[in-house]
Write a protein that binds this DNA or RNA. Structure first.
Length: 418
DNA sequence: TTTCCACAGGAAGGTACGGTCT
DNA sequence: AGACCGTACCTTCCTGTGGAAA
C-alpha cells in the first residue's frame, strides 16, 4: 500500500465555510423589503414596550432564518447599548410535532443541562407551569423564535398560551413575544382563529428568490468562499438557474455551488466549470434520495421494494391494489406479518410526498372506478442500492436479480480498475 | 341524466412504550 | 408497584368521489 498523507489544499477555496447553511453574511442581499417590515415589527422591543408577535412565512431557503439571525443579532447589540433587558430563545421545531414537545424543549433550552426535564411523563399543564416560571425568572423582554413551527401541525395550543400567559396571570415579570417561522404556506390558514389573531399580529411573507436575486446572493458568498478566477464562466448563473427552478431556494443553490467546488477540488481542477455543477446536481439529488429511503421504517421500505420489483417487470404504473399484493408476497417470504391495505395506502402517500414515487389519480368510471397509480421517480438501480440492508434481510426478488448482479459487477470492476 | 365502480382517505379508537409521580 | 401521561403506529369502519357506461 502506498504512503497516505494529508496536505492542505487551498487552490480553489479561500473560505469554504461561507457557503454553508449556518454562515450569516454581514449583509443580506435581495431582501430589503422584508427586512424593513421586520425591523419595524421589532421596534417596540427597543422602546421597552410589549413585543409584537411576528409570523414569517415562505418556502425553504428564501432567507427567513438568515434574516432573523441577522436582525436579532443587531437587536441584541442595540438593546445592550440602550440598556434594555432582552433574552432571545431560539428553537428549531424540526421533529417536534406537538405543543407539548415544544414546551418541553423550551424549558430545557432555558434550564441548565442538569435540570432538564424528560420528554414524556409530565402532564401538559405541569410543563406549561415550568415554562411560565422560567420565563418569569428571566424577566425583561423575552423573544421566543420558533423556527419551522409548522411541524407542530394541529396541536397549536402553545401558540395561544404564550401570548396570553401575561393576561392570564401566569407570567408577571416578563414581556414575551413569539416569532414563528413557517415553511408551509398553508399552516397559517389552518391555525385556529384565536391563534391566528394573536400570533399573526405582524405577518411578513418571504417570496422565492428569482434567478437575478440568487445570482447576487451567490456572487456575494462566492467572493468570500473562492479565490479570484476560481469560478468558470456561467457557473454562478447555472447554480442560480437551478436554484430558481427549486422554488427559489438559496440554500440549495449554495449547496450546489459548494458541491461543484468539492468535485472540482477532488479532480485537482484549476477552475470550477458548469460540468462540475451538473455533476454536483446529480450527486445531491442522489444523496437526497438515499437519505430519504434510509430513514423509512421497515414496512415502508418493503412497500417501496414491492413497487420496485413491479417497475423492474415494467408493470408500472401500478395501482395500489397491485402494489399491496406484491407487498404481501414479499412480507410472507420475509416472515413478516403484513399491514392492512389502508396502512399501505398511507405508506404510498408518504413515499409520494417524499418524491420517491410518483402517484396519480385515475378514474375508469363504471369499468374500473377511482384508483391511484404509482411508479418510481428514480431508476430501479439507485433505489435498490439504497435499500440493500432490507434486501439482505428479505431476499432478492427474481425480477431484480439481474439488476443487482449487474450493479455488483460494476462496483467490483471499478474497485479493481482504480 | 343517472348510475355505480372501486378505491381514496377521514374519523375514531386500540395497543404498546417510555416516561413521571406518589 | 401501580396510576397516569403523551405519542407512535395500527386497525376498523365508513363516507366521499369522478367519470365511463347505461
Amino acid at each position: 500500500m502506498s504512503e497516505i498523507s494529508f496536505t492542505p489544499d487551498d487552490s480553489l477555496y479561500r473560505n469554504r465555510d461561507s457557503l454553508s447553511e449556518d454562515y450569516t453574511p454581514s449583509t443580506i442581499v435581495g431582501r430589503d423589503n422584508e427586512i424593513s417590515q421586520y425591523h419595524a415589527a421589532l421596534q417596540p422591543v427597543i422602546n421597552g414596550e410589549r413585543p409584537n408577535n411576528i409570523f414569517l412565512y415562505g418556502k425553504t431557503g428564501v432567507g427567513k432564518t438568515a434574516v432573523t439571525s441577522y436582525l436579532l443579532g443587531q437587536l441584541q447589540d442595540d438593546s445592550e447599548k440602550f440598556d434594555v433587558d432582552l433574552t432571545v430563545i431560539s428553537l428549531n421545531c424540526e421533529g417536534l410535532n406537538s405543543s407539548y414537545q415544544v414546551a418541553v424543549n423550551l424549558v430545557n433550552k432555558i434550564r441548565t443541562p442538569e435540570h432538564h426535564i424528560s420528554k414524556t411523563g409530565h402532564p401538559q399543564y405541569e410543563v406549561y407551569e415550568f415554562l411560565w416560571n422560567e420565563l418569569d425568572d428571566l424577566g425583561g423582554t423575552v423573544l421566543i423564535v420558533l423556527d419551522e413551527v409548522d411541524n407542530i401541525g394541529e396541536s397549536d395550543s402553545i401558540l395561544y398560551q404564550i401570548p396570553r400567559a401575561r393576561s392570564n396571570g401566569n407570567i408577571n415579570d416578563a414581556k414575551v413575544g413569539i416569532i414563528g417561522i413557517s415553511n408551509d404556506l398553508a399552516f397559517r390558514e389552518n391555525l385556529s382563529p384565536k391563534v391566528r389573531s394573536s400570533l399573526c399580529e405582524k405577518s411578513i411573507s418571504f417570496p422565492p428568490y428569482d434567478a437575478t436575486e440568487l445570482e447576487a446572493v451567490l456572487e456575494q458568498r462566492a467572493e468570500v468562499a473562492f479565490h479570484e478566477g476560481a469560478l468558470g464562466d456561467g457557473v454562478i448563473q447555472l447554480c442560480a438557474a437551478y436554484g430558481a427552478q427549486d422554488a427559489g431556494d438559496a440554500r440549495k443553490a449554495l449547496d450546489l455551488l459548494r458541491g461543484a467546488g468539492d468535485i472540482a477540488r477532488a479532480e485537482n481542477a484549476d477552475t470550477v466549470t458548469t460540468t462540475h455543477v451538473k455533476n454536483a446536481r446529480d450527486e445531491l439529488e442522489r444523496e437526497e434520495l438515499m437519505d430519504g429511503i434510509a430513514d423509512l421504517a421497515d414496512h415502508q421500505q418493503l412497500v417501496l421494494y414491492a413497487l420496485t420489483t413491479l417497475e423492474a417487470e415494467s408493470e408500472t404504473p401500478a395501482r395500489s391494489q397491485t402494489v399491496y399484493q406484491r407487498y404481501q408476497e414479499l412480507a410472507e417470504v420475509a416472515a413478516l406479518d403484513s399491514r392492512t391495505s389502508r396502512r399501505v395506502r398511507d405508506f404510498l402517500a408518504d413515499l409520494s410526498t417524499l418524491s420517491i414515487v410518483v402517484s396519480s389519480q385515475r378514474n375508469d368510471g363504471l369499468s374500473g372506478g377511482q384508483y391511484r397509480e404509482h411508479k418510481l421517480k428514480h431508476d430501479v438501480e439507485t433505489v435498490l442500492s439504497a435499500m440493500s440492508d432490507l434486501i439482505e434481510r428479505v431476499g432478492i426478488h427474481q425480477s431484480v436479480r439481474q439488476t443487482i448482479a449487474d450493479s455488483d459487477r460494476v462496483m467490483i470492476s471499478t474497485t479493481f480498475d482504480s
